[in-house]
């Protein structure tokens, strides 16, 4: 494979991974309220959340592995897990490493959720809210495409969708949007 192809693959898989993580975060926020989200029932939301997360991780692995072989990035195995040590744009690449670490932590604890218990799982799962913006900023700051319009457009769409979901499923809006959650139905008939 030529270096160019590697570079394209690395960039492309990074962007796809970010888009998928955006879907994961949006669905995660949407499902927190306990109500059906966007017309999908909870089961569908939960399944898509899970599958998209695993798929995003696959693309993330592709992204990282291709960069290991990339002559420009000069990434080594240590940089993959320890942030801010790379030779090429240490800060921006370091953010990516950090996001990878967080993504791994969130994924592993989710797979072991029934072993570690709800409380520990939840504590780690909150890191997803840090992981996603870090990954986003990493994409803006470290890539070749960093000032291209199309990447900025994708980033904007990602940010807007997550904010939209967060706002629309905020508990304060519970009374006005969608039927109330089961717990507030109470027993009055």
């Amino acid at each position: 494979m030529s270096t160019d192809a590697l570079w394209y693959l690395a960039r492309g898989s990074g962007v796809v991974s970010l888009i998928l993580f955006t879907v994961v975060v949006a669905l995660g926020i949407g499902t927190r309220s306990g109500r059906p989200f966007a017309g999908m029932n909870r089961l569908v939301v939960a399944s898509v959340h899970r599958s998209a997360a695993l798929l995003a991780l696959v693309f993330l692995v592709i992204h990282v592995v291709t960069l290991l072989f990339d002559p420009y990035a000069q990434l080594n195995l240590v940089d993959v897990l320890l942030p801010f040590g790379s030779g090429y744009r240490p800060f921006w690449v370091g953010l990516g490493t950090l996001a990878l670490d967080l993504a791994l932590a969130v994924t592993i604890t989710s797979l072991l959720r029934d072993r570690i218990g709800l409380r520990a799982w939840k504590a780690v799962h909150w890191l997803a809210y840090a992981m996603w913006p870090i990954a986003l900023v990493h994409g803006i700051g470290s890539g070749t495409d960093r000032s291209t319009l199309w990447l900025l457009a994708i980033d904007a769409v990602c940010v807007v969708s997550v904010i939209a979901v967060a706002v629309s499923s905020h508990p304060a809006l519970k009374a006005t949007s969608a039927p109330a959650a089961p717990k507030t139905l109470a027993w009055r008939e």
Binding site: R42, L43, A181
Partner: peptide, 19 residues
């Protein structure tokens, strides 16, 4: 009462009026 189990096991479970 989030209802995922009832969705996965409709042969066995349903949701009551509170979910």
């Amino acid at each position: 009462g989030r209802g995922l189990c009832a969705g996965l096991l409709p042969e066995v479970l349903t949701q009551d009026k509170w979910g």
